[in-house]
Design a protein around this nucleic acid. Structure first.
Lengths: 339, 339
DNA sequence: AGTGACTTTTACATCGTTATACAACACGGG
DNA sequence: CCCGTGTTGTATAACGATGTAAAAGTCACT
């Protein structure tokens, strides 16, 4: 059986509340009392029951982080960063994955696990604006990632259009002419993929390069497999790009795999740029040039935004905040070759 | 303010306990009462406060899963599997990372977060046997992964020696003669690395191949970087292996990177085998032959073992259990070449 | 000694749930 | 008509912590 305040109080010959006061560092306790109680606490090895404390305080000290999938290293690395940072602020992080499915995302946004968590950081993929507007949970919600919404929630995301432009401009500078885009998505105008596609398209247009449908490969998902297949389809269709800009690193890695199978050299025949800066990219046979969002900054911004809302309470209204952490283009062999 | 049992009871004109009975599907409630209460529940959108329930029941319905790091895809994929499986059994999984540091591992084993979680699945790296014996927390603990301990805890791990033998035998069958081992560790005899090293050494000895120190590369960690450096050191030392068996896929990927930089072909000049079957390995320029532990089986076995202990309660003694999930050798281009 | 202004400690209610024990009621058999 | 049996519902006490309000103790000053 676990030790409770009562046990300590009994043994120390004081009231339960006094023990509680000692535990919580309350000011008005005489040094003698404090010392005596503290000794008993150490003796019995008392540790507060967080469940009880949470019940009484109405807060659990836990926040949830819902990501599409941990199998994607970008999200795993991001999760690491959030757990680390929030942990430092005495918050426990509940990690979850939505599988990028709309029903799951709605479930989480709606407060699945409400009463267990104080707030939620959600990185949506399929979630629609209407889902957010229909939300009735009162736990604070911070949105992560690049989809855009017209809803009153904090949103942390890098400037995707600018980031994509940087990547595209890099390929243009290298003198590439037929620069394909891998990882576009059907439909949904607010998708991240559209922002990156837009940045790419802007630069292509400005520099007189083709942007036709035949040079844009649509994928179902964001995996290596999707990238490999998309690249294969592109090549099979007769298009011969001399560069590809990929929605993310996984797709880029898949694409490089297909290029290797087809006997095309990277970057001599085809230059490749990814997005995310996952660690894999640094150890491919040909290391991957990529756009690196500052993951720690993202983790910090998201956690800070959420905790600030928690501290303010539900009544106080805080203007929804839009934070744009930085990014950097990291050039590696897949565009500039081996030194 | 959230709706509580009391609110529902008041509105429905019954006692609090009756509502509780309806919520919990207690048998002896007349259909009329049940229906009436249920209607009010739906009307008010009542959802049980799990914190209170947990306080009362003395259980939280949460288990922790402490892994070295999520950045390693093997652990990320494993975490995915555990969250999925335990979630299906109505358990919430608290994911944590120890960084593979002994102090952190001890902290978790000792019941950091006790009173929040009902039990713990821990995948230790540096944890020592004495740490386990000194453990005084009463929350059930299941050990995951390949380190061996003489302590009364359930342990889930594949047969590493057999797995390593399978991999080594594969390289022997291909006619390779100087088969290096990448990713050995200094000291600690109970380490996983030693088991894999042992399997490798057995096969080398049985087939008359060298097992000298010069062909075994020690690493500090288990990352791609470690693999790349170890491979470089091996080559610099003048050893010319025609195959490498790596402690894990990350090291193998790092090694392949170095081989590529040095102009050595895989598998023509050097065949490479990894361990873990992480997704990265399927999309390298040269896909990676690897030993694939059955991750889902591991996740299931660990969760089942833990939940069984939870169900049994602390008083009942269950014999510590050793489960060995299966594995499979998956041959890819890094040993058999491209078809 | 009595007063007022603190400081220190305590008793008790409370958070939202479930367990326990018991009251109220229905039913069938003698 | 009473009794035992079994069902249905309620009042109350926990679980372990904290907040509130008030009691008890201390001290300086008249």
């Amino acid at each position: 059986m676990a030790i409770s305040l009562k046990d300590v109080a009994q043994r120390a010959g004081v009231s339960v509340k006094t023990v509680s006061n000692v535990v919580n560092g309350y000011r008005h306790v005489t040094p003698q009392t404090r010392q005596r109680v503290q000794r008993v606490i150490d003796e019995l090895g008392y540790r507060p029951n967080l469940t009880a404390r949470h019940l009484r305080k109405g807060r659990t000290g836990m926040i949830a982080l819902a990501l599409p999938e941990l199998g994607n290293p970008y999200f795993a690395e991001l999760a690491d960063a959030v757990i680390e940072y929030a942990g430092g602020l005495d918050y426990i992080v509940l990690l979850d994955h939505t599988g990028g499915r709309r029903d799951q995302e709605v479930l989480f946004a709606q407060g699945f696990r409400a009463r267990v968590i104080d707030g939620l950081i959600l990185s949506p993929i399929e979630l629609e604006n209407e889902d957010l507007l229909a939300r009735d949970s009162d736990a604070p919600l911070v949105l992560l990632g690049e989809r855009q919404y017209d809803a009153p929630y904090d949103h942390i995301a890098i400037d995707n259009v600018a980031a994509a432009r940087t990547a595209a401009a890099h390929l243009v500078e290298l003198g590439r002419r037929r620069i394909a885009f891998l990882g576009a998505r059907h439909g949904r105008a607010r998708q991240t993929a559209h922002l990156r596609l837009q940045g790419w398209r802007e630069v292509m247009t400005e520099t007189g390069r083709p942007t036709g449908e035949e040079i844009v490969a649509v994928t179902d998902g964001y995996t290596r497999e999707d990238g490999a297949q998309a690249m294969a389809r592109l090549l099979d269709s007769g298009v011969r790009p001399d560069a590809v800009f990929c929605y993310n690193d996984l797709i880029a890695i898949g694409a490089m795999r297909t290029l290797s199978v087809r006997g095309l050299r990277v970057p001599e025949d085809v230059a490749v740029v990814g997005f995310d800066d996952i660690e894999d990219g640094r150890y491919c046979a040909t290391t991957l040039t990529t756009v690196a969002p500052h993951k720690r900054a993202i983790a910090r911004a998201a956690t800070d935004a959420l905790l600030e809302r928690l501290a303010a309470g539900t009544d106080k209204v805080i203007e929804p905040r839009r934070v744009q952490p930085g990014f950097a283009l990291i050039t590696r062999e897949s565009t500039v070759g081996r030194p």
